[in-house]
Design a protein around this nucleic acid. Structure first.
Length: 132
DNA sequence: GCATTGACGAAGG
DNA sequence: CCCTTCGCCAATG
């Protein structure tokens, strides 16, 4: 049901990055849910998550979801999500550029030159782990 | 309402 | 093998 919560000239007070999904089961929330299931010390890629959700071509949306994930709750370990290259492409979106790799190292993931070391080995594929 | 951008990825040249 | 282009979907200008 769609409850039109507004009919008044509300000046877009609703900003994204807070809760883009008024309802659950949104692509964003699905992404967060998968990312939250990433085991500590493991990492995955945007494409892998997208592929698990069935939209492998929409890997970019996963990145967008991560952006909103910063305000989601429970917190989403976005630092465990990197691009297919294993590079910390999103580190610039964290509070501080080194927050991402710092958290990864805390998870036991070695990061060097903004890239996850032994990425192929640490790669966590939701389609496999969660069941294809 | 159209044009541009974006934390990607695959394909083409 | 490196660079460019296209596709995806949504948000922003």
């Amino acid at each position: 049901m769609k409850a039109k919560e507004n009919s008044k000239p509300l000046k877009t007070a609703k900003k994204i990055t807070e809760a883009p999904a008024p309802k659950q089961h949104s692509f964003f929330e699905d992404v967060w849910d998968v990312v939250r299931q990433i085991p500590k010390g493991r990492v995955t890629s945007y494409g892998a998550v997208a592929s698990y959700l069935g939209t492998k071509m929409s890997a970019r949306m996963v990145g967008w979801a991560m952006n909103a994930a910063h305000h989601s709750h429970p917190p989403v370990p976005a630092q465990r999500v990197v691009n297919r290259n294993g590079m910390l492409s999103g580190k610039h979106h964290f509070p501080t550029p080194d927050a991402m790799e710092k958290m990864l190292k805390k998870d036991g993931v070695k990061v060097e030159n903004d890239t996850v070391k032994d990425f192929a080995n640490l790669f966590w594929n939701p389609s496999e782990e969660l069941g294809l």
